[in-house]
Design a protein around this nucleic acid. Structure first.
Lengths: 343, 343
DNA sequence: GTGAAAGCGCTAACAC
DNA sequence: GTGTTAGCGCTTTCAC
């Protein structure tokens, strides 16, 4: 095995052993000095640190990880469910991911990202966890994988999920109170003059289903007719056509629309204009998320805000606590009605 | 050292050695069977595979990585430059990231994401590379780190960068021909009737500088006065105010605006409306990127398209080739003018 | 406070 | 075709 020879070119300090030789101490001491714990003579430590800096030495994380049985990496999984492939650019998830990256970095963890297509790979979650590359996992969105996540949660503690909360569920979830959000949305539509409300989106997706249910609650309580569902995919290409079809089919039969996301609301606004329907005078519109786009539509969008940054912080905080052995509860964040000009 | 005992609960198959015991063969054989290479007796292989499946066994990637001196992980670094912190949700980068994730997965690699703040950590790139956790790195955006990237490129081959190409540069880059894009934008503005053109954005950022230069080329060639620069940050909060200020200051002195990105164009549209300026009759507007939002502004945005998916594919393809030892050239993708209604 | 030595779980010569 | 063995680079007892 002559592998090592060329790799360790003259003078290169690649391993803790190289550094030990240079410092005239044993590898063990270098390890202790660099880890910053255990007792090490101050002078020895300084010398080693200086040498490490000088040679830009970094201990190999793989080796360290193998020995310590932890990797310093948190996995982030984005399941792409039935509505596959297009969530590619779903703004909400991507924004959440950005915040997660910042928060994990702050806590000294690296982030391993995996987008998974559950229908192609039923064991996506077990495989991610079992890879040995991650200390814990954050799942962004339950998609249609609620049951699978529940199954895994029984045997694996280091997991936190962004999504909807369900009575008695076993996995630890962080998410907005979607049902309450839906209620706020519907109430606002009504306050703005709507009487015949429709929900635009795919209620098969857990979170959307809860938003719809909340709207339904409000409608019932206010004595209105039930909220109508206008099933719509999330991908812009399909959504536009679907929305247009819905608007044509329901012409004159609805005067308030609650969309599952702001992205859909923006598209809906475009289609409403195309149909010659005035917003908010002819039709009131409320979105969900309060993404940056909500401020830029014409007119600006009334919507239900989710606090993404707080969500990311909570996800990381709960996960770290679980890594420390704690059994944490789920966290439900309050939605907030943001009134702009569409309702 | 009694660590192992409880971890290997009765019956649990955690290591290749456990599996070997079960199969009645040696660990080496299991390794070979699972790796799918080398000669292994068909029956032995089947038996081992069956056992592995049954116990949901996966070889530990850390250990395998350490031994083979490769990790199967590609690092993706997003440097947050002077315009720090807010690019958090820059749609363009996030979309590119999504495509990269898909493409890397397709090629059997995992993705490790790091957002870095160069001013807080000068050695961000060396550290990422030196961590021992990644086989190669893709840098998304040069930000203001061009020189640092150049330095690293001299000694490290497994790196590809998304960004702007500069005559004689040493790092391998994939990116759109920004200068050409800028020229197309300016030419379109002129074709739509503009005579006094402004560039809205921060020309300190490499790619934006090139876009501006392209517009300047066109203006000069067409005998117009030089393109005016309206410096503007990317973050929505700051951008809106800055744009409003620019519009007030330049009232009546410009009739065509080329923005550095679609995001800025969307904000600009809002501010133009607030100023009572008609688009495109009073002021023509052209963006850059062709993000989904470009189709949804009112009126829909004329813009310069970058082919993000093709970019992601190229980044991964070039990186893999470099991993295989090849010395690859940079790749410049052609921009495309998309005419909608703002110019 | 430091050195020696035993592995973490895996792979790849090298034998047979 | 398969077993044996020697590490990958690091951390952590256990001695001293």
């Amino acid at each position: 095995m002559a592998e090592g020879e060329d790799r360790n070119a003259r003078g290169t300090v690649r391993t803790i052993t190289d550094l030990a030789r240079l410092a005239g101490v044993s590898p063990g001491t270098v390890s202790r000095a660099l880890a910053g714990k255990s007792l090490v003579n101050a002078k020895t430590r300084e010398k080693i640190e200086a040498l490490a800096r000088q040679h830009a030495f970094q201990p190999n994380q793989m080796a360290s990880g193998l020995r310590r049985q932890k990797t310093g990496v948190i996995g982030v999984a984005i399941p792409l469910g039935h509505d596959t492939r297009q969530q590619i650019s779903d703004s909400f998830f991507m924004t959440l991911l950005g915040h997660l990256a910042d928060e994990l970095t702050l806590q000294g963890y690296d982030l391993m990202l995996r987008r998974v297509v559950p229908e192609d790979d039923a064991d996506w979650l077990e495989r991610f966890i079992g890879s040995g590359m991650i200390d814990g996992v954050i799942v962004i969105g339950q998609s249609d994988q609620f049951d699978r996540i529940e199954d895994v949660a029984d045997g694996y503690n280091a997991m936190v999920v962004w999504g909807n909360h369900q009575e008695g569920q076993r996995h630890c979830v962080v998410g907005t109170d979607n049902r309450l959000g839906g209620r706020l949305a519907a109430e606002r539509l009504v306050a703005a003059g709507a009487r015949r409300i429709a929900f635009l989106g795919d209620i098969g997706a857990m979170e959307f289903g809860a938003r719809f249910a909340g709207a339904q609650d409000a409608a019932a309580r206010l004595g209105l007719e039930p909220v109508m569902v206008l099933p719509t995919h999330l991908s812009p290409e399909r959504a536009s056509a679907e929305i247009a079809a819905h608007l044509t089919a329901q012409a004159g039969r609805i005067d308030g629309i609650f969309t599952a996301t702001d992205t859909l609301a923006a598209l809906c606004l475009t289609e409403l204009r195309a149909c010659g329907l005035a917003v908010p005078d002819g039709v009131r519109l409320v979105g969900f998320d309060d993404l940056p786009i909500a401020r830029q539509t014409v007119p600006p969008l009334t919507t239900i805000r989710q606090d993404i940054a707080a969500g990311a912080r909570a996800l990381v905080d709960l996960l770290l606590r679980r890594l420390a052995g704690e059994k944490t509860e789920s966290l439900i964040l309050p939605p907030e009605l943001i009134v702009r000009e569409t309702a």
